[in-house]
Amino acid sequence: MALIEIENLCKSYVMGEIELEVLKHINLNIEANEFVSIVGPSGSGKSTLMNILGCLDTPTQGKYRLDGIDVGSMHGRKLAELRNRKIGFVFQSFNLLPRLTALENVELPMVYRGAQSREQREKAVSALEMVGLGDRLHHRPAELSGGQQQRVAIARAIVGEPAIILADEPTGNLDSASGKEVMELLQRLNRDGATLIVITHDLEIAQKAERQIFIRDGVMTEARKEMTT
């Protein structure tokens, strides 16, 4: 059984009287520990696919099973719990809470899981150490560089040991050097066992993945990287 099973998935929005079909009959399986990139121009539907993969949205039609759980039938509270336990988000604009320190930001997913305070702290500290920011625990986002902020966000994504890391243009707001660092960090986490999905329009980044999913006008095509051994 694959970690992600998507079967004949459709998503449409009703805008006034027009029904807009954003995703058309997507079929996609992703195994644990894979590194998959989703590529497409803006307006292609890749953000919608990401939202559905990240349990922020539900499909109009079709099946989405994540780690054996049928996401399509879930709402509100259950969906929030699923996001909390199974998904680690990394956003283009980092999306750290400016008033909280790096450590407090990383603790957030654990807070919403209802973890004990000591366990929270330990896990958050070790996640920050893993991304190389063990000496920046009590800095606020404004006191960190863009690359460091994104690494805090990655620490926040992995602190709850999610089933997948979902990165939406993770290097989009970074200079090329920090961008490279962030991609290397994500790939390292992937090699260490994390399932990584990167949404991007940057083909160079997309090509780092084993599988590339292309979305255009809501339709999916796939290219598999030649394994160079």
Binding site: G76, A80, R83, F89, L97, L108, P109, Y112
Partner: peptide, 14 residues
Amino acid sequence: EIGIRKALGAKHSD
């Protein structure tokens, strides 16, 4: 902020 919190798993009640 609310969006971020929700993405990280904050429920309606939280």
